[in-house]
Design a protein around this nucleic acid. Structure first.
Lengths: 213, 213
DNA sequence: ATCGACCACGGGGAAATTCCCGTTTTTACA
DNA sequence: TGTAAAAACGGGAATTTCCCCGTGGTCGAT
């Protein structure tokens, strides 16, 4: 089954390259894009097949993300709206979520995380890791560590998958990596968390609020 | 290392049998008991070795649990106070916690759970599962179900241990059961949760708020 | 220009987990 | 007073996890 994606972003280059990226994901296809909210909504009305998920840039000229999200929620309640933004500003996050978004993603996320987020959104209807990841990212950028360890992007994504019923082999499949590579993430996180079992790692991930459950 | 326990309860029979039970736990010894708060506090002043943990019945004549807890907090801040009660009444729980208790246990808990709670309190300084278990117990008694499964007491205790770095063999040791018995709990919970790995079980336990992390 | 990280990957083996096949006793309860 | 559920336990085997031993590439920093 293929999930249809719509994108609205005012940077032409970003818009198109993101589209390329998403088209390369199995099970996702970009069916519509626009350079601002008004442009996007106009095209949407002419569209025969509605997208399942719409990625909305928060800052756009003419019609911004919040206004666009409100209209989408009103006229197309079945479409899942995801906010896209450069900065993890709490107030914009809140206003986007109040406008009916089911997720909030930062533009500097890893492609693998984007794919995972889209999967989760299409399956569960929401993706919450970002809210936590934003906090985590902020910790990484400013404040530092204390006993706080810093995980790499891929370790964080691996961690999310590790908190599930999947075997490492299946996780390797999901992340398009060799099983041994996954084993490397595991070893690294085990050491950083000071645990010696997958359950211990998963518990620590939840304790540190690095994953959504 | 041995942890010293004090108990205050107005039912002579319960007081003494609980003392017997706790004395049979390795690493715990009852050093003091009393039939009400005043009696207990009076004996405590004459006592050379202070208890590490005090179990306080909420409903006692002369001086009840809340008043006793307040005095203990004031005069012996190092002692960890645990509330004991027949009923899971929210208001009494809150007033006991406000009086400085670090845990709230129902009198109908399984001995193994009591031992685990005491262990956690002496190690971590608190035990929170009860607050969650109270909700769980309430669900079991009244309402219940829908997709909600019902776990037995021992399965619930096992679940708590399973959400840790311990191996099943180590859990068997902690619970004083044969490894195969633990395997039985595992099989049963797997089926009830519809999972096929320990991590999946642990995640489900957290999702259903059956364990503390 | 070397150093430290993060990344990707491979083989082998011990230990733990998962999942079958069972038995017996106790406890609750209708 | 049957019966059903829960508890406790045993053996064997397939799979997964865990933990070693490595290789080599990229990239940013001192």
């Amino acid at each position: 089954m293929n999930v249809k994606i719509g994108i609205a972003d005012d940077q032409q280059l970003f818009l198109k390259s993101l589209g390329e990226l998403i088209d390369r994901f199995t099970e996702f296809t970009v069916v519509l894009d626009g350079l601002n909210g008004r442009d996007f909504l106009y095209k949407l009305e002419l569209q025969s097949q509605l997208p399942d998920i719409v990625l909305l840039d928060v800052n756009m000229p003419v019609m911004d993300g919040v206004a666009t999200a409100k209209v989408l929620e009103q006229k197309y309640p079945d479409i899942k709206v995801v906010a896209l933004s450069m900065k993890d500003d709490d107030t914009t996050i809140i206003s986007m979520l109040k406008a009916g978004c089911c997720a909030y993603l930062l533009k500097d996320i890893h492609p693998a995380e984007l794919e995972m987020a889209l999967k989760e959104i299409s399956e569960k209807g929401y993706y919450n890791a970002d809210a936590l990841n934003i906090r985590y990212r902020r910790m990484l950028i400013h404040g530092q560590a204390k006993d706080q360890v810093s995980l790499t992007e891929l370790e964080l994504i691996f961690l999310q998958y590790a908190c599930s019923d999947l075997t490492y082999k299946q996780i390797a499949g999901e992340m398009n990596k060799a099983p041994r590579t996954i084993d490397g993430y595991r070893e690294s996180v085990f050491q950083k968390f000071n645990v010696q079992s997958r359950v211990g790692m998963a518990m620590e991930a939840i304790r540190r609020e690095l994953v959504t459950i």
